[in-house]
Simulated assay, not measured.
Amino acid sequence: MNLHETTVVLVAAKTATLAFGSALTYLSYSAFRRTDSRALRALTIGIALLTLGVLLGGVLHQFADITLEASVSVQSVFTAVGFAVMTYSLFVDIIDEPDRTRSGARTGD
């Protein structure tokens, strides 16, 4: 694969990631608004950070004359923080309600 083909694949993959990330951010935000769930709010923030990292990394490389390594580093920081927030979203309900069982089964039967 030559440099031009690699660039086309990279731009296509980033565009798809941006499109799907934006759609997921919108859908999770809509779910958060309907339910007012702290877990969905954290999930929305995590997905938004992943998506923002993709956008920012690409913009920095293409338009701000930043090296590919630096722009990938910026994107990687957003990815790490986004995944950390998404991981937190899985535990936020457990933290808020420690007596609730994870399976949803009733206790005391």
Rank of each mutant, 00 (worst) to 15 (best):
Y26P: 12
M86S: 08
L55Q: 01
T7R: 15
A23D: 04
F78Y: 10
S37H: 09
D99Q: 06
L56W: 06
L18R: 00
T7W: 12
A13L: 14
V59H: 06
G58P: 01
E97H: 12
R100H: 03
G108N: 08
L52D: 01
A13F: 12
V9L: 15
V8K: 15
S22Y: 06
T79D: 05
S73I: 09
T35F: 10
R38Y: 05
L27A: 12
L50C: 04
L24Q: 09
P98K: 06
G82A: 07
S89M: 04
T35V: 09
V9T: 11
F83W: 05
L90R: 12
R106Y: 03
G46T: 07
G58H: 02
E97R: 09
T107S: 09
V85P: 10
Q62H: 11
I66S: 04
R100I: 00
S28F: 14
L18K: 02
S30A: 15
D93A: 13
L68P: 00
I45H: 00
I47R: 05
V59G: 04
R100Y: 00
V74L: 08
T35E: 14
E5K: 15
D99L: 06
S73G: 12
V59Q: 08
I47P: 04
A80R: 03
F78A: 03
K14T: 07
I66V: 12
G21I: 04
D109A: 08
D93P: 02
S73D: 11
R38T: 01
H4Y: 12
T15Q: 11
Q75F: 05
R34I: 07
L40T: 04
V8T: 14
S76P: 06
G53M: 07
G53A: 08
L50P: 00
F83M: 06
A84L: 13
S30W: 03
R41G: 11
V74E: 00
A13V: 12
L3W: 01
T51D: 02
Q62N: 14
A23S: 09
L18I: 10
H4E: 14
L55N: 04
A84T: 13
V9G: 02
R41A: 07
A42I: 01
R106N: 04
L27S: 14
D109Y: 04
S37K: 09
R38S: 06
L10M: 12
A84Q: 04
I45L: 05
F20Q: 07
T67H: 07
V74N: 00
A105S: 09
L10A: 15
A42V: 04
F91H: 10
F78M: 05
R102V: 11
V59R: 09
V11M: 05
V77P: 01
N2L: 08
I95K: 05
M1L: 09
S30D: 11
Q62F: 13
T67P: 08
A70D: 05
Q62R: 14
D36Y: 10
L49G: 06
T101C: 00
L52T: 14
A70K: 02
M86A: 15
Q75E: 10
N2Q: 08
